[in-house]
Computed example of a mutant assay.
Amino acid sequence: MMATTHVFTGLAVVAPIAYVLPEFAVALAVGAILGGLVPDFDLVFAHRRTLHFPVAGLAVAVPAVTVAAVFPSAITLFLAAFAGTAWLHAASDSIGGGPEMDPWNHRSDRAVYDHVRGRWLRPRHWIRYDGAPEDAALAVALATPALFVFDGWLAAVVVVGVAVSLGYALLRRRLVAWTPDWLE
């Protein structure tokens, strides 16, 4: 899935909380945005292995959410949104294709690495590849709650994210041909 889809997933999860507790809306949104993006910082290392924790991440997310529920503050809600969204990002990567540049060819049986079991989880291809039409549709659907709850610069970030998602989806399959060989 696209990084923006992961971000919108986190924003959709925290939107109801931000609606009920608007004083924490920024902390929740920033935590969700960063949690949706940070796992993909491993693109320069072993992608979907170095910073993706589809099983172990739950051991961080559950306590963070529990602490935030018992002691709600800007920092605890930020950390809960970050940890929860980072875990959702890693866990949901297994429903898509592999991490290769052309996952529609199904050359890889690796979606995301499970550090607990020491093995790769297989791609399920429910979302065929990042930037697939169904990925773009999911991104738009998940962005919608955020547009109703967040305003100002946060709403602008969501609108820009939707535009980036749609543009990427339109160009995704062409990007492989445009990518230098050393990046593959």
Rank of each mutant, 00 (worst) to 15 (best):
residue 109 D to L: 05
residue 127 I to F: 13
residue 121 L to G: 05
residue 7 V to N: 10
residue 102 D to W: 07
residue 115 H to P: 00
residue 49 R to W: 02
residue 51 L to R: 01
residue 92 S to G: 13
residue 114 D to F: 00
residue 180 P to R: 02
residue 104 W to K: 06
residue 118 G to S: 05
residue 167 G to R: 06
residue 19 Y to P: 09
residue 108 S to N: 15
residue 39 P to M: 14
residue 122 R to H: 15
residue 49 R to C: 05
residue 183 L to D: 12
residue 174 R to P: 04
residue 7 V to I: 15
residue 31 G to R: 00
residue 38 V to D: 01
residue 135 D to R: 08
residue 82 F to G: 05
residue 48 R to M: 01
residue 19 Y to D: 14
residue 88 L to A: 15
residue 99 P to N: 11
residue 48 R to F: 02
residue 57 G to D: 03
residue 65 V to A: 13
residue 98 G to S: 10
residue 74 A to T: 11
residue 115 H to W: 02
residue 143 A to S: 03
residue 107 R to I: 07
residue 53 F to E: 01
residue 166 L to S: 06
residue 130 D to T: 09
residue 17 I to D: 02
residue 132 A to C: 14
residue 141 A to N: 03
residue 96 G to K: 03
residue 112 V to N: 02
residue 101 M to D: 14
residue 80 A to T: 04
residue 64 A to C: 04
residue 155 A to L: 01
residue 70 V to Y: 07
residue 18 A to D: 02
residue 120 W to K: 10
residue 130 D to A: 10
residue 30 V to M: 01
residue 132 A to R: 13
residue 116 V to Y: 01
residue 175 L to G: 08
residue 40 D to I: 03
residue 61 A to K: 04
residue 77 L to K: 00
residue 146 A to S: 13
residue 143 A to P: 07
residue 141 A to W: 03
residue 151 D to E: 12
residue 25 A to R: 09
residue 118 G to D: 02
residue 99 P to G: 14
residue 100 E to K: 01
residue 130 D to S: 09
residue 130 D to Q: 05
residue 2 M to K: 06
residue 77 L to A: 01
residue 168 Y to C: 04
residue 69 A to P: 05
residue 135 D to P: 08
residue 53 F to C: 01
residue 7 V to M: 11
residue 102 D to L: 02
residue 141 A to S: 06
residue 61 A to Y: 07
residue 52 H to D: 05
residue 170 L to S: 12
residue 110 R to C: 09
residue 131 G to M: 07
residue 72 P to K: 10
residue 133 P to G: 10
residue 36 G to T: 14
residue 134 E to I: 07
residue 127 I to K: 04
residue 80 A to V: 02
residue 124 R to Y: 15
residue 135 D to K: 06
residue 140 V to A: 15
residue 15 A to C: 11
residue 64 A to K: 00
residue 142 L to D: 12
residue 66 T to M: 13
residue 67 V to Q: 03
residue 54 P to I: 14
residue 45 F to V: 10
residue 76 T to I: 00
residue 40 D to Y: 02
residue 167 G to P: 05
residue 2 M to A: 09
residue 178 W to M: 11
residue 24 F to E: 07
residue 23 E to C: 11
residue 135 D to F: 10
residue 159 V to I: 04
residue 38 V to I: 11
residue 183 L to G: 12
residue 65 V to W: 12
residue 79 L to H: 04
residue 31 G to W: 00
residue 31 G to A: 06
residue 184 E to D: 13
residue 150 F to L: 13
residue 108 S to Y: 13
residue 86 A to W: 06
residue 67 V to K: 00
residue 130 D to E: 08
residue 108 S to H: 13
residue 133 P to Q: 04
residue 63 P to C: 00
residue 54 P to R: 14
residue 11 L to W: 04
residue 88 L to M: 15
residue 19 Y to V: 11
residue 122 R to D: 12
residue 91 A to K: 12
residue 72 P to T: 07
residue 24 F to G: 06
residue 175 L to T: 14
residue 172 R to I: 07
residue 97 G to V: 15
residue 132 A to E: 13
residue 123 P to L: 08
residue 166 L to Y: 12
residue 140 V to Q: 08
residue 94 S to Q: 13
residue 27 A to M: 05
residue 42 D to T: 00
residue 35 G to S: 13
residue 147 L to Y: 06
residue 122 R to E: 14
residue 165 S to K: 05
residue 182 W to D: 11
residue 5 T to F: 10
residue 108 S to V: 14
residue 72 P to G: 12
residue 121 L to N: 07
residue 148 F to W: 08
residue 83 A to E: 08
residue 100 E to Y: 07
residue 20 V to H: 06
residue 55 V to C: 01
